[in-house]
């Protein structure tokens, strides 16, 4: 039974390098992780058995996405390639490799019907691909800064993409037309003294009922270069025409925190994962409140997370070279 206040770490598995990204296999068998190197790793949930996926990328893997059936998954790398892999293989080798972007592919998502793959990255472009054969379908241009996150609407007709400046664009999947732009301005700051841009839509999630769009990242960036900032989520009401957030959700006291990923839970809560000065957190908000109602402390700074299809298990990846499985329910 979902009960976030009973959340506890069930297990953890070590990796070779600090980890950046993770995704559960939709069949619920595996969690796949990307690290600060070119090799992916697959952990079997039942026993933690680890298999490495080498030979695909030249550098770090920043994004992962599974096919709807979970039999294949794709990884996006810092060199701009998308690689297709067979999930359950015993002898991993790239199935397909396409030169998809110039520079990093920061985020990927597969459409609810499983047909399309969306990818976005440092070349400011969002691309749609045929998930089954890797054929390019459409290119969506309009972001002025690096694209940090992409996510499909649950109904599959539109796509949301967020960038460094906090712009979240909603696109018509069928036509590629830009429908509207949400401004998550609190997520971005230009620091005049340091001369740097900082922030970005680092987590993006649409509620299963299609009502809420949540864009997460950081604010209060008084010293971007020194990691002084706090996590924040901008909540947009998709039913309204308002381009600005209807609510800013914060987590007071999580210093040096950034929202790296967002998921909606079955009880209507929004869950974010954050790093922070004193470790990592899973943070929980209700859509009608500014402040989090619960936060669960993780043992090390977390960088990404995914929610298992059971809605209870959460995978988090950490700088301390571990992937952890947390259960949002009482211990059994």
């Amino acid at each position: 039974m979902l009960d976030v206040k009973q959340a506890h770490v069930v297990t953890q598995w070590p990796a070779d390098r600090p980890l950046n990204v993770c995704r559960f296999d939709p069949q619920g068998r595996y969690v796949v992780v990307g690290a600060e190197d070119a090799t992916l790793a697959r952990f079997q949930l039942s026993d933690g058995a680890k298999v490495l996926f080498p030979g695909g990328h030249q550098t770090w893997v920043f994004s992962l996405a599974f096919s709807k059936d979970g039999n294949t998954f794709v990884s996006g790398g810092g060199e701009g390639k998308i690689i297709w892999w067979e999930t359950a293989t015993a002898a991993p080798a790239p199935l397909r490799s396409i030169a998809a972007h110039k520079g990093w592919i920061r985020s990927m998502a597969v459409s609810p019907d499983g047909a399309l793959l969306a990818s976005g990255g440092n070349d400011l472009v969002v691309r749609l691909w045929n998930m089954s054969d890797g054929a390019a379908i459409r290119e969506l241009s309009g972001h002025e800064k690096h694209v940090y996150s992409v996510v499909f609407h649950p109904n599959g007709t539109t796509l949301f993409t967020g960038d460094l400046k906090g712009a979240v664009k909603q696109w018509d999947v069928a036509t590629g037309q830009l429908l509207r732009t949400f401004e998550a301005k609190p997520l971005y700051a230009y620091n005049d003294g340091q001369g740097v841009d900082f922030g970005g839509v680092r987590g993006l999630a649409v509620s299963p009922d299609g009502k809420w769009l949540a864009a997460g990242g950081l604010h209060k960036a008084s010293n971007p270069l020194g990691a002084v900032h706090e996590p924040i989520v901008c909540l947009f009401d998709l039913a309204s025409d308002k381009p600005e957030p209807v609510r800013q959700q914060i987590a007071e006291g999580v210093t040096q925190g950034i929202i790296w990923g967002l998921r909606w839970l079955s009880d209507g809560s929004l869950m974010g994962v954050s790093g922070g000065g004193s470790g990592g957190f899973l943070i929980f908000w209700k859509p009608d409140a500014d402040k989090d109602y619960y936060r669960f402390a993780l043992p090390s700074l977390a960088r990404e997370m995914d929610l298992h299809l059971d809605g209870l298990q959460v995978a988090t990846v950490h700088h301390d070279r571990h992937v952890r499985i947390t259960k949002l329910a009482a211990k059994t």
């Binding site: 520079g103 440092n122 690096h146 340091q194 001369g195 990691a227």
Partner: peptide, 18 residues
């Protein structure tokens, strides 16, 4: 001068832009 490279945080993001 070009500011600023004191990237204790997110070295890579900042270096891309700078």
């Amino acid at each position: 001068a070009h500011s600023n490279y004191d990237t204790h945080n997110e070295n890579f993001n900042f270096h891309i832009e700078q």
